[in-house]
Design a protein around this nucleic acid. Sequence first.
RNA 1: GCGAGUGUAGCUCAGCUGGUAGAGCAUCGGGUUGUGAUCCCGGUGGUCGAGGGUUCAAGUCCCUUCGCUCGCCCCA
Length: 426
Amino acid sequence: MELQAVKGTRDFYPEQMRVRNWLFSIWREVSECSGFEEYDACVLEHEDLYVRKAGDEITQQLYNFQDKSGRKLSLRPEMTPSLARMILQHHRALIFPVKWFSIPQCFRYERMTKGRRREHFQWNADIIGQPGEIAEAEILMLLINAMQKMGLNADDITIFINDRRILNAVLEQVGIPEPHHAEVLVILDKRDKISPEALAELLREQGIAAAAIPQLLELLECPDLKALKSRLGNPEPFAGLETLFGLLEASGHGDFLKFDVSIVRGLSYYTGPVFEMNSPDKSQRAICGGGRYDSLLSTYGGETIPAVGFGFGDVVVLDVLEAKGKQPQLDQRLDVMVIPFETDQAGTALQVASSLRKSGLRVDCNFSMRKMKKVLQQADDAGVKQAVLLFPQELEQGQVVVRNMAERSQQNVALADLQSGWLTSQ
RNA sequence: GCGAGUGUAGCUCAGCUGGUAGAGCAUCGGGUUGUGAUCCCGGUGGUCGAGGGUUCAAGUCCCUUCGCUCGCCCCA
């Protein structure tokens, strides 16, 4: 019997589950606050939903199998295809734009590194059916709002943003023909990770003209949107980001946003702005990433519907919060512990607990019948605020002892008063 | 997939050149009747990741395998 969890998957003991619920509650709260509605789909999907989208490489990472009737299924590696499927199925009934979010559990069958497991939860928020930068601004503001709720601000995290249209223009400028763009972008995505020499070598292998390479790398050193714009003949590809920066400045979120030509995002379906969130010095794996993908839905056979969104995994952000000491210390949050000291009082304890629970309190009983010092200590460890002590002597007079754990004070209360709301009226 | 490291009690780890397993914390009990700290005493708990080999003898050496960690590769 194998007791270990499946490789790459996680067990959430109550202690970790509290942290997870805390994170999810922030995601839900900020999403709903901004008018996003929650949706979900089954973690199982038809394998070809993913195969069609990106080809071999992603197929190898699918956590896939055949069911008993031979259907080829896969655990979802990401939510966007399921979202696209749901949108396309009902798109005649939907009033666009649609603002939806989800917190799906996703699976990838791949090698594990820091911040990457085979199973994770990924907050997704998307705006479907709205072209233009206002949707991007809303999506980014949602992200920023979530980070602030977690206690991270512009000193801790930065959203690095680029635009696929700018990247394409840069490639055009140095004479790289359009069919090569996809491969070249993948290589440029590694710019932070490998040496300039290695990068140049990879580009040469793609058949990029030797003269174009230094020119390209030099253009990509351009740290500034304006500077890059003046270097390129055509200002048109810059309009989108300029508008977006303007919107975020106006809404007071400009500090979080930084132009970065090296942001590419591996997937081919991005068509406009692309972004990743990371620490300002990019010292670790991106916390989340996203962008505009106007042509994705049409690849599933539907009509073209513009869309923008992001995926935000739980693993990396919890690592970041832990490293910064900003993971909350959460305890069980029990309000009341009812403590009988003889088995005769078990029934009374259950009855007291029941009546207190009806008034909305979080109540547990301790039936261990251990020594009182032990039981009080356990109650304290559980974060209990009030202990209701059932002693035979007091019970005979219809009373219980209510102990305020923080103040270490206590008083006798009539059982009848307790059951009619004495605790909540204090 | 390649390379390095690692795996000993629930947790964190010690165990030298091979000689039949230890500490701290946690847990449980006690320190005289029904009260949370600290302290003191004691108990439970390990086929030393698994399998094979060398040896009189393996936690310790060798091989295989699995898990984990960190690089590389690949990529959200």
